[in-house]
């Protein structure tokens, strides 16, 4: 029984990591007033970019170096995510296009790129079958050498690849950044009231760009984690599923707080796999459990709007573009 519980906790943590990356990235983005609904697409992009980088490296050398196995996919994933986030920023901030329209188009685009390259990458290199980067996957999964020696506790909490810890560290750093630094204060002001931020001498455009780019890169790591650590270097089209939307749900559920997002991700990750651990659950009930995260998110959204506590509201300018000389 105990071991089942620990196994469940372990699996929940694994499930929660892509969500946490996505949620943290979206929180940073939304704090600048950009509702980036392209995050699901960016996460696909982060995943496939990592796959492409890893594939090219693993196939160009006979004996892949472990450090490069990590660095190359990591960098290529970040570059891919940045590229999409850049498209979003350019369209919504510089060209002031509607954020919802841009974000949704970006998601279509990103998922398209992911599935296109995921399905055709091997054929470009004259190979057949499905992508499987075993070596790279192993490098990403590599955990602390002594983790398994620490018994159940070690297995449950310390047996993860480095991206797991990175996700939590990034969330904590983001929380510190938003609440305890000058730049964080400025960023929040841009999302609350860009005209006021502008009058205070804050470069609204710069903050919107940077937060969307950095947020995109972080979210993309969620995709990378999924393809490298979770699936061990394999790609299946649409395998990432709707985790990107779940990440956006977590942002609301956590009321735009990165530290709360850590626990929310864990909770949502747990719900994602709960049915496997409850014996005798029918497959239909499983679908209902998968519905739960969205239902509770809606409830949270409704409750914060009813309670009207000012600190818990979405950033006030969320979804609106800013034009200084609007008259």
């Amino acid at each position: 029984m105990i071991s089942t519980i620990f196994a469940f906790i372990n699996a929940a943590i694994i499930q929660s990591i892509p969500l946490l990356f996505g949620a943290t990235g979206e929180i940073i983005t939304e704090k600048s007033g950009n509702l980036n609904l392209g995050i699901p697409g960016i996460m696909y992009m982060g995943g496939i970019s990592g796959i492409i980088g890893g594939y090219i490296y693993e196939h160009s050398t006979a004996s892949p170096n472990a450090a490069l196995c990590i660095i190359i996919p990591l960098l290529s994933s970040i570059v891919g995510s940045l590229l999409l986030a850049l498209i979003y920023s350019f369209l919504t901030v510089t060209l002031r296009v509607n954020q919802n329209v841009t974000g949704l188009a970006l998601t279509t685009f990103g998922i398209g790129i992911g599935n296109f390259f995921g399905g055709s990458l091997l054929s470009f290199f004259g190979e057949t079958g499905s992508i499987s980067l075993i070596k790279t996957g192993q490098c990403f999964k590599a955990s602390l050498p002594f983790a398994n020696k620490l018994g159940l506790f070690g297995k449950t909490f310390l047996s993860f690849g480095f991206l797991t810890y990175l996700a939590i560290i990034i969330a904590l750093v983001t929380s510190y950044f938003l609440n305890r630094t000058r730049a964080g204060l400025s960023l929040r002001s841009v999302g609350e009231n860009p005209a006021t931020a502008d009058a205070a001498g804050i470069n609204v455009t710069k903050y919107k760009y940077l937060s969307t780019l950095i947020g995109g890169a972080i979210a993309g790591l969620g995709g990378l984690y999924f393809v490298m650590d979770y699936t061990g270097g394999a790609w299946t089209n649409n395998g990432f599923g709707d985790r990107g939307w779940l990440a956006i749900a977590i942002v609301i559920f956590a009321i735009w707080r990165p530290t709360t997002a850590i626990f929310s991700s864990f909770l949502f990750g747990g719900l994602y796999i709960l049915c496997i651990y409850i014996p005798g659950l029918s497959s239909s009930a499983k679908e209902l459990i998968n519905m739960l995260p969205y239902v509770v998110t809606i409830l949270v959204l409704v409750i914060i709007s009813m309670r009207k506590k000012r600190e818990n509201q979405p950033p006030a300018s969320l979804g609106l573009s800013y034009f200084r000389e609007e008259r």
């Binding site: 509702l35 609904l37 919802n100 709707d242 939307w245 779940l246 956006i248 749900a249 609301i252 029918s282 497959s283 239909s284 499983k286 679908e287 209902l288 998968n290 519905m291 969205y294 239902v295 998110t297 809606i298 959204l301 409704v302 709007s305 009813m306 009207k308 979405p314 969320l318 979804g319």
Partner: peptide, 30 residues
């Protein structure tokens, strides 16, 4: 909810999509 409490409608409607999808999956399973 938007009319009475000004609940953010884009996030609300977005989430309703996935509730609907799971509902479809549920009934197909049944």
């Amino acid at each position: 909810f938007k009319a009475i409490w000004r609940t953010n409608e884009s996030l609300f409607t977005l989430m309703m999509n996935y509730v609907a999808m799971q509902l479809v999956s549920f009934f197909i399973m049944v």
